[in-house]
C-alpha cells in the first residue's frame, strides 16, 4: 500500500494522572484509505482519536507512553487548531453541533476554525451541499431541531468545510437508523474515492465499518488485540462474538 499518514506507536493515555484509558495501542493509517477502529463501549476508541487531535489536555488527559505522528510529526507538539489547518480534522462522537446555530452557521464555523476566507467558505458550502443535498434544505434550521441523521451529516459537513486530508470520525452510526447509517457510509466512501480523503473511523457497528474499510484494528480494555485487512476480519466469527456483540450487516 501507499505511504503512512498517521501512525500510533504503543500509545498509552491517562486521565487526571490516575485513570488509565489506553495502554500500548498501535495502529497505522495509510494515505487515501479508510481504516476502521473497532471495539465495544469503553474500549478506548474515543480516547485514541482525541489523542491524535491533541484534544486530551482539554479534558485533563495526556499521552503517558508511546507516540502519535501525523506526517512524521509528533501530534502533541501541535495545538488542536493548528492540526485542523494542517488537515487533520476530528468529527466528534455524538455530533456535537452548535445547537442554537443554524445548520449553515455550523458548517461555516468549520471553515472559520480552519482560518479560510469567504470565497473558500462559499465554495465549501456548495461542495458540502452536493454531497449532502438534505443539508441544503435544512440550512436555515437550528441544528438542535434537526434529526439525528441530519445532525451527523452536518457534523461531517462541518469537518469537510475545514478541507481535511485525514478525517478522525468517531462513531457516526451512533443512535441512527440502519438505512441512515448505510447512506452516511456510502457518502464517506464516495468522499474517499472522489477526493482522496483518508478516514479513520471508530465504530461499534463493525459490520458496516468493515464493509467500507481497507484495514481494521480491534481494541478492547485499552489494548489493541487484532489487526488486519478489513475483508479478513469480516470473515472471522470469533471477532464478532468476542468483541462486537454479534452485530450483523444492516445493508
Amino acid at each position: 500500500m501507499s505511504d503512512t499518514i498517521l501512525q500510533f506507536d504503543d500509545v498509552s493515555v491517562r486521565y487526571s494522572g490516575s485513570i488509565t484509558a489506553l495502554s500500548g495501542v498501535s495502529l497505522t493509517v495509510r494515505q487515501g484509505e479508510i481504516a476502521a477502529l473497532l471495539g465495544g463501549n469503553g474500549a478506548g476508541k474515543t480516547t485514541l482519536l482525541k489523542a491524535a487531535s491533541n484534544l486530551l489536555p482539554a479534558e485533563r488527559g495526556r499521552i503517558t507512553g508511546g507516540r502519535i505522528t501525523f506526517r512524521g510529526e509528533d501530534v502533541t507538539r501541535t495545538s488542536p487548531d493548528a492540526h485542523i489547518r494542517k488537515g487533520l480534522v476530528p468529527v466528534l462522537e455524538g455530533r456535537r453541533l452548535f445547537r442554537s446555530l443554524t445548520i449553515e452557521e455550523n458548517l461555516v464555523s468549520g471553515a472559520i476554525g480552519a482560518g479560510l476566507r469567504s470565497a473558500d467558505i462559499r465554495r465549501g458550502l456548495e461542495e458540502v451541499y452536493s454531497f449532502f443535498p438534505r443539508l441544503k434544505e435544512r440550512r436555515q434550521s437550528r441544528a438542535g431541531l434537526t434529526s439525528g441523521g441530519e445532525q451527523q451529516m452536518a457534523a461531517i459537513g462541518r469537518g469537510l468545510m475545514a478541507r481535511p486530508q485525514v478525517f478522525l470520525l468517531d462513531e457516526p452510526s451512533m443512535g441512527l437508523a440502519p438505512l441512515v447509517v448505510a447512506e452516511i457510509f456510502e457518502t464517506l466512501s464516495r468522499l474517499n474515492r472522489e477526493t482522496g480523503l483518508t478516514i479513520l473511523v471508530a465504530e461499534q457497528n463493525s459490520a458496516v465499518a468493515l464493509k467500507h474499510a481497507a484495514h481494521a484494528v480491534v481494541i478492547g480494555n485499552g489494548r489493541s488485540t487484532i489487526t488486519g485487512l478489513a475483508a479478513d476480519l469480516a470473515q472471522r466469527d470469533d471477532i464478532r462474538e468476542a468483541y462486537l456483540g454479534g452485530a450483523s450487516a444492516p445493508a
Binding site: S53, L55, A58, E59, P80, D81, H83, I84, R85, V89, P90, L92, R96, L97, F98, S109, G110, I112, G113, A114, G115, R158, G159, A162
Partner: peptide, 8 residues
Amino acid sequence: FAAIAIGL
C-alpha cells in the same frame, strides 16, 4: 469542547 475541536 466542540469549538476547540473544530479549531476555533
